[in-house]
C-alpha cells in the first residue's frame, strides 16, 4: 500500500464519469435543480484537504443500533439485518475515523419524517437513522431492519428499490460523499430513475450490497456487505504542497 499520505496531501482529481451528471431528466426533480454552467476547477488548498475531525464521545452507545435506538415498548417490525463493510480511498488505504451516517424507511417503506405522507404504517419502535465512526481498518457495522420499497411521485407509478442512504465524511472536505445502498436481487434496481442516472453498470454494481453469508448472526440476522471508496489522497513526495513554498 505504500506510505501513508501526509495529512495535508492533496486528493486525486474527481473522475466525474463515476457519478450521475447533474441533469438526469428521468429523475424529474433534477431538471430545475441542476446547474447549467460548468463547475470551475480549482487547485486544492487547505480549505479542501482539511475537514472536521469527529470524536467517539460525540456519538451515543446506540447510535449504530437502529433496532434498539428508537425502541420504546417493543422491537421494530421487520427483517433484522446487519450491514457492514470497509471505507477505503481510491489507493486502497483504509479511511479511519470516517463519520458514516445512515437513514432509511422502515419495513413498510415509510420514513419517520413529517413530510412523508405514504400510507405505509409508521413503526413506533423504529426511527431509521444511525451513525458511527470507522475503526483503524476503515471498518464499520450497524444493525437495522431491512427497509421496504415505496412509491414516489416521479412518473406516477415509480417505485424506489429498497435502499439505505449514506453520508460519509472522510479526512478531507473533498471526500464528502452522499449515496444510497441497494440490496442484491431487488427487481426494482433495473428501473429506478435515480440509480439509473449512474453512468456505468460497474458503478451501479458498486452501490448494491451483497448478501454476506459468513457474517450471518445465528438465530438472529442475515448480513449484507457494503464497501465504500472515497477520493484518493496522494503522497506528498515530488508533488505540490497545499501549504508552504514550492519544493
Amino acid at each position: 500500500m505504500g506510505r501513508p499520505p501526509a495529512t495535508d496531501a492533496e486528493y486525486l482529481m474527481r473522475d466525474t464519469t463515476s457519478h450521475p451528471i447533474a441533469l438526469t431528466p428521468a429523475y424529474k426533480t433534477s431538471v430545475l435543480r441542476s446547474p447549467r454552467l460548468a463547475p470551475i476547477s480549482l487547485e486544492q488548498s487547505l480549505s479542501e484537504v482539511t475537514a472536521p475531525v469527529f470524536r467517539p464521545e460525540e456519538l451515543g452507545a446506540l447510535d449504530n443500533d437502529m433496532i434498539m435506538n428508537c425502541a420504546k415498548d417493543g422491537l421494530p417490525i421487520g427483517e433484522r439485518i446487519v450491514v457492514h463493510g470497509y471505507v477505503h480511498d481510491q489507493l486502497g488505504r483504509p479511511v479511519s475515523n470516517a463519520l458514516v451516517e445512515v437513514w432509511q424507511a422502515n419495513a413498510s417503506g415509510r420514513y419517520r419524517h413529517k413530510k412523508d405522507q405514504y400510507i405505509g404504517a409508521l413503526d413506533p419502535n423504529f426511527g431509521g437513522c444511525g451513525r458511527m465512526l470507522t475503526d483503524a481498518n476503515g471498518y464499520y457495522a450497524y444493525r437495522t431492519i431491512r427497509p421496504g420499497p415505496y412509491p414516489w411521485r416521479n412518473r406516477i407509478n415509480d417505485w424506489r428499490p429498497a435502499h439505505i442512504h449514506y453520508a460519509i465524511s472522510g479526512n478531507g472536505w473533498v471526500q464528502r460523499l452522499i449515496t444510497q445502498m441497494y440490496f442484491e436481487g431487488d427487481p426494482l434496481i433495473a428501473t429506478c430513475p435515480i440509480l439509473r442516472g449512474v453512468p456505468s453498470e460497474e458503478q451501479i454494481r458498486g452501490l448494491i450490497a451483497l448478501q454476506d453469508r459468513g457474517a450471518f448472526v445465528q438465530l438472529d440476522s442475515r448480513a449484507y456487505r457494503f464497501d465504500i471508496v472515497l477520493r484518493g489522497q496522494r503522497a506528498t513526495l515530488f508533488e505540490n504542497a497545499v501549504q508552504g513554498a514550492k519544493q
Binding site: 433534477s30 489507493l91 442512504h165 452522499i178 449515496t179 444510497q180 435515480i194 449512474v198 458503478q203 471508496v229
Partner: peptide
C-alpha cells in the same frame, strides 16, 4: 479504485 457513485 473508482470512487463510489454519488446518489441524491
Amino acid at each position: 479504485m473508482r470512487e463510489t457513485a454519488s446518489q441524491t
